[in-house]
């Protein structure tokens, strides 16, 4: 229980190993300039950062979003358009694109988070499709299904990945710091109160709608920003690539697998699952790889939901402390108090 609280509040920071890990990751491109590993790590960072973001809504507040890739895709398009039309480099616009995603998230939150119930699921579920449809139909701006080509970065081919590597790493560091800060703050406490018992939270004076909307806005900033960087990384965006369903699915699975509502849960999930799935996809014949990958991820999601809903970290803690699953009252001490009051 102690351990959980410490982990939940970002305890390892004081221990230093995350900082050591960070230094190590900072050095990787210098020692290991091979594209393959940098690419793998970069995508791991990207998924980890977005998962941590997803978890601010899905883990702390308990509202699972089925539409984060919508923000990722719109982020890709926004960054692409800013670059193509105004010549603004993506590495500068990415955080602002994230802010646009946040504003949009706040708007969708206003539609769907003022009441409890299924509205949030419905809106996030349909939002991705709407976004995709819009990008497809606004042909004059977005190029429709042709997509948009982004000017290449002016770097030698073997170094091109380096700025993306550091960019995604920075995004991950920000995500973790923000998540820790929220977990420690009264805001975070309010979100957890909402997850535990929303009616009671409201009766305690928590402005639940505002909290949820704010949490969602923060949550999607990471998806929007990552989408922006990703567009430049591919130098291309089209409606299929930008709104790939697998992205949302990955975020959900990584958060659940690592443990929802714990800062390091989604990070752990991403660092285990992304490399693994990259390796496994490698093994499947490419003709059906996409389909099999999708089905396999679906199966993984169902299995995790059924058998590991608490995730690795929380399950490990439960196993460590071996406390009974249902909380029992402290009878022995209770009797002392109740007679001496």
């Amino acid at each position: 229980m102690r351990l959980e609280r410490r982990l939940g509040q970002g305890w390892p920071l004081r221990r230093g190993w995350p900082w050591a890990g960070l230094v190590l990751l900072l050095l990787v491109p210098l020692v290991l300039p091979e594209g393959f590993y940098l690419d793998l790590l970069m995508f791991t960072f990207m998924y980890a950062a977005m998962s941590v973001g997803w978890d601010i809504m899905g883990g702390y507040a308990g509202y699972v979003s089925l539409g984060h890739v919508g923000f990722f895709g719109l982020g890709s398009y926004a960054a692409a358009l800013l670059l193509v039309h105004l010549g603004l480099p993506v590495f500068i616009t990415a955080p602002l694109v994230g802010l646009m995603a946040s504003l949009l998230g706040a708007g969708l939150g206003f539609i769907s988070l003022r009441t409890r119930g299924p509205a949030f699921v419905i809106v996030t579920l349909t939002f991705t499709y709407v976004a995709q449809l819009l990008m497809l139909d606004l042909k004059s701006v977005t190029g429709g299904s042709q997509g948009l080509f982004l000017p290449l970065l002016d770097l030698p081919a073997n170094l091109v990945i380096v700025p993306f590597y550091y960019g995604m790493l920075a995004l991950l560091v920000i995500a973790i710091l923000v998540s820790i800060a929220i977990r420690r703050s009264k805001f975070g406490l309010g979100l957890i109160a909402i997850r535990e018992d929303e009616g009671k939270a409201e009766a305690s004076g928590v402005n639940t709608s505002l909290y949820k909307i704010l949490a969602f806005a923060i949550s999607v900033w990471f998806a929007g920003t990552a989408g922006a960087l990703h567009a430049q990384y591919l130098n291309y965006v089209d409606p299929d690539l930008a709104f790939e369903l697998i992205i949302t699915l990955n975020l959900i699975i990584m958060s659940l697998f690592g443990s929802r509502g714990i800062v390091w849960g989604p990070v752990l999930g991403a660092f285990i699952l992304y490399p693994l799935s990259a390796y496994l996809v490698f093994l499947v014949p490419s003709r059906v790889a996409g389909q099999v990958h999708l089905a396999a991820l679906g199966i993984v999601l169902v299995l995790v939901v059924m058998f590991l809903p608490d995730g690795l970290i929380r399950s490990y803690q439960g196993w460590r402390t071996k406390r009974p699953k249902d909380a029992r009252p402290l009878e022995a001490r209770a009797s002392i108090v109740e007679t001496t009051g």
């Binding site: 699972v64 089925l66 299924p118 699921v121 579920l125 369903l245 699915l249 959900i252 659940l256 059906v288 996409g290 389909q291 099999v292 990958h293 999708l294 089905a295 396999a296 991820l297 679906g298 199966i299 999601l301 169902v302 939901v305 059924m306 809903p309």
Partner: peptide
């Protein structure tokens, strides 16, 4: 979690149909 499970079902069906 139940909603997530039906989301998983949807994805499995989509993948299977594609395959």
């Amino acid at each position: 979690l139940t909603v997530l499970m039906t989301f998983g079902f949807a994805i499995i069906l989509e993948g299977l149909q594609g395959a």
